[in-house]
Amino acid sequence: MNQSKSASEILGNPDHQAFSFGGYRGLSRDSVPSVNQLKEGLRILSAMDIKLLRTYNTQQYAHAANLLEAIHQMKQENDGFEMYVMLGAWIDCEGAWTDYRNHEAEDLKNNQAEIDEAVRLAQKYPDIVKIIAVGNEAMVHWAEAYFVSPAIILKWVNHLQDLKKSGELAQDLWVTSSDNFASWGGGDSSYHKPELEALIKAVDYVSMHTYPYHDTHYNPHYWQVEDSDTLSEIEKVDNAMLRARDYAISQYQSTKDYIKSLGIEKEIHIGETGWASKTNELYGNEGSRASDEYKQKLYYDHIREWTNGAGLTCFYFEIFNEQWKDASNPLGSENHFGLITLKGEAKYALWDLADQGVFEGITRNGYAITKTFDGNKDALMETVVPPRSLQLSEN
């Protein structure tokens, strides 16, 4: 018989590893993957023993609805199949994506539709939808095209909490917002406002994002290395990736410290973190030199080890490459955060699973799951360069 656990049983449980999931394959989200196409991805994830997925929109595209139906059907077909979803409702400010943005007001029509569809889907699939996230990086100020004040997120969180109290939503459903660590008070004090404190009290847990990858460019001092004649090139890379792990941990800790300073006890889990394997932009060999599959694997392994050991859930971003994210630039970093390529190649982070036969007999988009670089590690390592030295960067 199919299992159905509560959010409190799933979050922080190392037996329920999590991924951010987007099943899009084309250059535009207008081409929504079908239920059967999404089942291909679910078979891969299930073979990896993944049991928790995160989505980003509810009604703008049919992806979330199709994914939930795909999981539902697979549960009907196999009593042992177990998969849960953190359903994301997209939140925009008034005039989002235009030159007339008002960050203190909201796009009520869009936001109401997103929340209403989240409620409908949670009611239709209560055995699958265990978390609703109000907004994705919807409060962080660098999301200039659409961010809103915490008061707007709080309004919708309270609405969902009221539906739980009235019995219209399951009481064991958890409600949060998924946002950058700074938005939760772990960074700039400009975010430290009464409405944020009220939001922290209102959510069931804090879903926090951390991206050391991006800060290899925006905060390079953490990433760059001192000149050394004693370390090999690969030792410099290995040490840099340990610093990346510690950088993520420090952002988690600063968020935890801020929440504690308010006298609030609240669970924190990692709603998003990841590392791109390729780019021709800021993080490439002409920039911070952060992007290759070796570094991606180290980051993935370090983050899983840390979060599992600390009793945290980590929605690692992401399982599949998605080329719509930067459709005009195939080598854009946003297209290469996945651990599996569009051609079904498992990147270095998953080579060990491929060697174990985990993906045997499974295909996606007509491709068997093989290994990048044809499994040739020497060829892979030729793409790896260490960060620049501090001395060279400052001269």
Rank of each mutant, 00 (worst) to 15 (best):
M83E: 06
T307C: 14
Y247F: 12
I153A: 08
K256Q: 12
S31M: 04
G26I: 01
D79C: 00
S288M: 07
L169C: 04
M208G: 01
Q391G: 04
S228G: 03
W156C: 02
P14I: 00
V203A: 04
T273E: 05
T372K: 05
K165T: 11
Q112A: 09
H72K: 14
A62Q: 08
L380I: 03
L169N: 03
E9N: 08
S189F: 00
I131T: 07
V119W: 13
M381H: 02
N57G: 01
A62R: 03
M83K: 11
M208D: 04
F315T: 08
V119P: 02
W142Q: 12
G263A: 07
K236Q: 14
E144R: 11
A89S: 13
K124Y: 03
T370M: 08
N321T: 09
G88K: 06
L53T: 09
N219S: 12
N395G: 13
W275G: 11
I44T: 05
L27Y: 13
G309A: 04
V225N: 14
K266Y: 06
I249Q: 13
L196K: 03
R388D: 14
T55W: 10
T372L: 08
M48C: 11
I303A: 13
D162Q: 15
H269N: 13
Y299F: 15
L169E: 03
T383D: 13
A327P: 06
A368P: 08
M86P: 08
D292H: 13
Y191S: 03
V32M: 02
Y316D: 05
T230K: 14
Y61F: 14
E334I: 05
E195S: 13
L298V: 01
V134E: 03
Y24S: 05
L231R: 11
S8M: 12
F21M: 09
K5D: 00
H221S: 09
F19M: 14
S189G: 02
E322R: 09
V119T: 10
D326L: 12
Q17R: 15
M74C: 09
R101Y: 01
G41D: 15
N329P: 02
Y56F: 15
S178C: 15
T279E: 10
A47K: 10
E94L: 14
S166F: 13
Q161C: 07
N180M: 05
E382N: 14
P212V: 01
N376A: 07
F317S: 04
A240L: 10
S34T: 15
V148K: 02
E394N: 14
K75Y: 07
I369Y: 11
Y294P: 08
A122P: 09
L282T: 01
I71T: 03
E69Q: 15
N219F: 09
M139L: 12
Q59E: 14
G357Q: 11
